[in-house]
Design a protein around this nucleic acid. Structure first.
Lengths: 213, 213
DNA sequence: CGTGGGTTTGACTATACTCAACTACGGTGG
DNA sequence: CCACCGTAGTTGAGTATAGTCAAACCCACG
């Protein structure tokens, strides 16, 4: 969702958002779009029965809220204390925008489409273990890992991850434990996780199968 | 996904697509976007294991393929014999486009985001019965029903519906039967379905509960 | 008239959910 | 500084829902 073009030519400023704050809600008229500079924002749809589905996590560099001209289809909330750049949308929407600006917005929107498509695919026909590994791999690729020990530090709560993967929090927790038992993950400390490199996983699986046989 | 602005000012022409034909594939460079005039197009992601997830069905009036400037995240195939309007994308992407044209593209893209968000929400935490009713309600709202008997005629195969709802075809079939048994649906003929109006459903549910007690 | 793909039904299984208890951490106040 | 409390997370037992494998069926097609 990172914009390739230079959005900084548009009017913008920084804002700080505490954890849990609603940035915009579903149904609102769009007044701005945003870029994440620090922290983590979750895009979500809230069901009428209190359930929620998290559609995407936005990390530093990601642009969100570009679905203009209509009531917001989703809400955006800070999953962690965050710093954003806010790009207000004027009434005379984009009349002064250059083609590059439009292309940047289309690009961001297209990226969101790609992310949602990948998400839908990730959830489809995948077991809880596969979903979690898919999520962690994606997170590691986007946010990077500690070079020393390969540790990963998800900025969002377990609850958020569960709602993202469409799992009950209990199932997520159990799945974590199972992956640790299989040697695919390691708990570095309370909030850090070390991922076994992809290249080693096949052998781990083999051991698993051999010991089962 | 219907474009509000007048896309017809852009260069375009009609194309006919037989059922099952691939319109574009995932990973391709985008060469055009399209509007459905007749028939039905499915947007899908194909898993490496032969599985596929259908992300959206595009009906007459819907614009798709506006995710420009990047390899396609998804494939588009004709779910039924279709007629499309093709809008080619020139190399000098949109240099000659007016702001309204850009707005139209952003609008179509935003709508797709909304559709995917709704889809993700529809699949999340919903039983097979709820998913199917959600799908049929949505289809009836978009495509309309036969005024005489309220019958609905899905243009896509059961297999497509199953892949859209992330259900096994067998489960979908069973779910149809269960809803018919509950009186929420009726099979008019082989391919037509009559939906019980929303206003009557509560009473049907009540009967169901009373007979169970 | 025969063949074949898409669809329906059946029996069994596996996976994730629910309900519930328990634990560990972080923040707060004495 | 330590005790307390509340929240988030983990673990356990039982259940329910949808998936899998397998077979029958039906209409459309040649």
């Amino acid at each position: 969702m990172a914009g390739k073009t230079d959005l900084d030519c548009l009017r913008h400023w920084r804002v700080e958002i505490p954890k849990g704050r609603v940035i915009y809600d579903a149904g609102e008229a769009p007044k701005a779009f945003y870029r994440v500079e620090m922290g983590c924002v979750r895009l979500q749809v809230n069901g009428d029965d209190g359930r929620r589905q998290i559609l995407a996590f936005c990390l530093p560099g990601d642009v969100f809220g570009v679905d203009l001209e209509r009531p917001r289809a989703m809400a955006a909330e800070a999953a962690a204390a965050s710093e954003l750049t806010r790009f207000p949308i004027s009434e005379r929407l984009g009349a002064a925008w250059r083609p590059e600006d439009w292309a940047g917005v289309v690009d961001a929107s297209s990226k969101l489409v790609g992310v949602l498509a990948a998400h839908l695919m990730g959830l489809a026909h995948a077991s809880a273990e596969e979903r979690l590994m898919w999520f962690l791999d994606g997170l590691a690729a986007r946010q990077g890992v500690n070079r020393a020990n390969g540790a990963l530090r998800p900025p969002m709560s377990r609850r958020d991850i569960a709602d993202f993967l469409n799992l009950a929090p209990e199932t997520l927790s159990r799945t974590f434990s199972r992956l640790v038992a299989q040697g695919l993950l390691e708990r570095v400390d309370r909030r850090q996780i070390a991922l076994r490199p992809r290249s080693l996983r096949a052998s781990v699986r083999d051991q698993e199968l051999r010991s089962a046989a």
